[in-house]
Amino acid sequence: MACSVAIISKDNSPLYVLAADIEKEIELQYCFHSALDIVEEKSNTANKNPDTRDLFLGLLYATELYKIYGYMTNTKIKFILIVDSLNSAFRENEIRAMFRSIHIEYVNYISNPFIIPNEQIFSKTFDRNIRNICKV
């Protein structure tokens, strides 16, 4: 089972959402959206020092269907991953690695001088790369 990814801007609007299951897109969006509560809470209470702060926020919460992980860059871009809670293939280390790859992809994308930051991402390449990472 693949996982769903959302990239969320610093003002909490979605930049990119990849839903593993198209039929459940709304539900997943709600999940991403609700996860922001916890991301905010974690980023507020967590170590504020940017040098030592771990970008990976860990498991945000789990429902019986999903496990939701968060990751926040230093520029407050949030990555949220939703994986099937029954899928044991995704352990925390794998999740970390995925986040790191997504981060690299995002940095590559944002390095393009022609893109407009803080706007929705429509890049096909980016989409393809993210899909590869998430094995959708």
């Binding site: 979605p14 897109e25 709304i26 969006q29 959206h33």
Partner: peptide, 10 residues
């Protein structure tokens, strides 16, 4: 305000 248009549309 948060521009979650998919949800918003619904």
């Amino acid at each position: 305000a948060e521009k979650w248009y998919s949800i918003f549309t619904a």
